[in-house]
Amino acid sequence: MLTFTLKRLAIGLLCLVGVSLIIFVAMRVSGDPTLLLLPDDALPEDRHAMRVQLGLDLPVPVQFGVFLENAFLGDFGNSIRWKMPAMSLVLSRLPATLQLAALAFLIAAVFGLLSGVAAARLRGTVYDSLIRFVMTLGLALPVFWIGLMLIMTVSVNMGLLPTSGRGTFWHMLLPAVTMALNPAAALSRLTRSSMLNVLGTDYIKLARVKGNSDSRVVWKHGLRNASIPVVTLAGIQLANMIGNTVVVETIFAWPGTGKLIIDAILARDFPVVQAAICLIAAIYIGLNLLVDLLYGVLDPQIRY
């Protein structure tokens, strides 16, 4: 277990280095940062001085080494736009994003699981078809469109919830629901098919033979087995959700990392982009590790 975790952490660290390389290359390709840092009419000598100061006169591999070293110390340079350390800027916005993602994941997991189990138990009835139809549709709805439609109907027309910003729980509800929709649909579909597989097995029949009630059969004997593939998907969905915060936070003007990233990209504020993407990749890798460990808890046959 410990060796497995350590091994996975090492691989994750390698992946992070890879991610930083991608970011580094992307930054190099996108052009000379001094064009952004200095006014258009700056003197060539000033430009050169700036390049030396930023280390851009060194050979490219050395630059990457320096970048990597600084990155591991959490130093991604200063934000061009906000004139403050990029990482601390990103970290200051992180809680808002995590809060949103947590609520969205909770909604998605609860709805996905309940509706998936319900559809499996009602297999072959109209309710099953209805749930499946709604979930197939839910999977096809683009996040940004759902967000706008919800704002339009719930906030603007009915005036029930605030349209944007962060403050009360009610501010969080619409963006969270928006983000939860796709994952809920995906989880529901997989839960249903996984649960149906499980409900057809002999050990479920034996549970019935023993005299278990229907709901105990489903929730105790079925769910844990059925949830093994679902957990993988839930991990992927949670990770995707963190990506989707970029879109959702833009629509709802939610002051989190996602909005920061898109603002930074549009303003070519590369230190911030790098810091944010590295941080998100680290979270992403951590989540994947967590999913693998959870696997071991759910399925006794897996021993690390």
Partner: peptide
């Protein structure tokens, strides 16, 4: 490596650069 980044972020990074 690529899968340790949310796809939309990768896309944004590429488009931006």
């Amino acid at each position: 490596i690529q899968m340790s980044m949310p796809p939309i972020l990768l896309a944004l990074l590429l488009s931006a650069s």
